[in-house]
Design a protein around this nucleic acid. Structure first.
Lengths: 334, 334
DNA sequence: ATGAAAGCGCTAACAT
DNA sequence: ATGTTAGCGCTTTCAT
């Protein structure tokens, strides 16, 4: 049987309030009693029951996280940042993988409500009304990571997707490429998808290459689909010399396809990725990519949620962190 | 303010006990009252407070998971299996990333205790006495995944590491290789390390190649270290034609090193990995590897923990799941 | 079949 | 400075 506050009190020869005080307001209790209580706590390995505390404080010090795909390295980086922030701020984190399944996501929100999480972090997926209503109906505060919402006033932290895409494509243009194509997200709920297409188009237009801006093939999130998309892309636009991919995993799929067709990367075709997942530097060739500060994004999103919980509001609603171009081996001058 | 059972009772015009009954023993309450209560619950979006429930049942229906590195794809696969099992059995999962830091791990155990998780799953790391004592001291039931313990009687689910390594090396031998080397785990706390070395040695001995069995260089868990280890390995044993790696990530590191030295894989050197992480099929060349059933291991470990929680014991203490060799492109006949 | 009331472990207001 | 007690939201006797 787990020891309770009563056991500690008995052992230390004091009342339960005194025990409670040494835990919550140590300086209101005399030295000797405090020491005795501390000793009893130590001996019994006592830890206050968080159910009882939760009942009183109405706080669980637990945060919920909803991510689309835990096998995607992008989220692994974000999670590390979140966990460190949680440790700093005294929260536990409940990570739930939705597998991009709407029903599953909704069920997790129910679970969060039941477990009384203090707040939730919603990653990447588009905040459709159904999700919003449910969260709002339960009055669960939440923030968005690598996503944002203009319909609703929800705090978010992300990267500037349009600018990231623009920088990637501009880099390709500066390398001398003139036949540039793109692999985008075909997920209609992708929030990063449209701005990255716009960034692609803007860089192209600026260089007088607007005739390329329709050269986009869409793929859903994984390597295999990007591989297939690459096939389609090179069938449609065979003279392409550079491909901008909206995810590193897409870049790997494209390179893999090219490799199977004995087309050299970067010798004949240059490829740029997006995210800078840990694998990007391990792939052959190492990926040139637009890096997102994943760790920091995770960290900030927890801090932001905490701010929201603590003060009821947030200084800056839509926060953007800096991306940067990392040039490695998958690109070359034309 | 969240609605309580009292709000529901008032709205339905019954006592709180009746409300409680419709939730816990629906058939003991008359049709019409039950319906009224259900309606009230619906209207108020009432969900019982899990703190209050936890206080009574002394159960949180939450499980804790301790993993060494969430950025390692191996764990991502395991986690997916765990989450599905948790959904089936009605648990929530609290995933904690230890970064292989002992203090951090210990702190998470404290957090688990405080949050009263029903049980914990301990992944990969060796169960050192310190961990065991803490968990046992708190009386938290737990199981091990991709690990085991002979000192303590703790349920575990893993793969047969010795046999997996043996199969990998045997395959290399059958391919005609005679100069075989290995990259192992240098982590003294690795539980998979020693048996994989033994499997390596056994396959070698069986083929009269025992003079190779010292050809091992050790690396710590990541790509970069395997890259460096490969340098060391080929400096020491330059005529090596095949390398057995105890992790796919090591295999990638080795291949990357070889690539940088313009040594062809599998043309000149064959490489086998271990795990079959999702990246294994995406790498160039695609990795030949010993596949672990990660999803199933995760799933089973949760079921096993549940069995332990529900019955106080477990049918089979040390459970082993089947590995299998997957031949792809990183190996070739000598 | 239903309601009243005790009690789970804790905190905080109130007494002393 | 310390103890006594009400009450957080729920389940579960115990009456009725």
């Amino acid at each position: 049987m787990k020891p309770t506050i009563r056991d500690v009190a008995k052992r230390a020869g004091v009342s339960i309030s005194t025990v409670s005080r040494v835990m919550n307001a140590p300086d209101t209790v005399t030295e000797d009693k405090r020491l005795r209580v501390l000793e009893a706590i130590e001996e019994l390995k006592y830890q206050p029951n968080s159910f009882a505390r939760g009942l009183i404080y109405r706080k669980s010090y637990t945060l919920g996280l909803l991510i689309p795909d835990i096998e995607n390295l992008y989220y692994a980086g974000i999670i590390r940042g979140m966990q460190d922030a949680c440790i700093k701020l005294g929260y536990s984190l409940m990570i739930c993988n939705t597998d991009r399944d709407e029903g599953r996501l909704l069920a997790y929100i129910d679970a969060f409500h039941e477990k009384q999480v203090d707040g939730v972090i919603f990653a990447s997926d588009k905040l459709i009304p159904e999700y919003y209503e449910k969260l709002a109906g339960y009055r669960i505060p939440f923030v968005l990571v690598s996503s944002h919402s203009y319909e609703y006033e929800v705090p978010s932290v992300e990267v500037d997707d349009e600018a990231g895409a623009y920088d990637a494509v501009k880099f390709l243009i500066e390398l001398g490429h003139r036949k540039i194509a793109m692999i985008g997200f075909n997920d209609p709920n992708s929030v990063a998808g449209p701005p990255r297409c716009r960034g692609f188009a803007r860089a192209l237009a600026e260089a007088g290459l607007e005739h390329n801006s329709g050269n986009i093939v869409f793929a859903s999130h994984r390597f295999e689909h990007a591989y297939d998309a690459a096939r389609e892309l090179f069938a449609k636009y065979p003279d392409t010399t550079a491909v901008f991919c909206v995810a590193d995993e897409f870049a790997m799929g494209v390179i893999s396809y090219l490799k199977d067709r004995s087309i050299l990367v970067p010798g004949q075709v240059s490829v740029v990725g997006f995210d800078n997942v840990r694998m990007a530097g391990m792939f052959i060739p190492k990926l040139t990519t637009i890096a997102q500060p994943m760790y920091e994004m995770g960290y900030r999103s927890v801090e932001k949620l905490h701010e929201l919980l603590a003060t009821g509001r947030v200084q800056v609603t839509r926060e953007r962190l800096q991306h940067r171009l990392i040039v490695r081996e998958s690109t070359r001058e034309k």
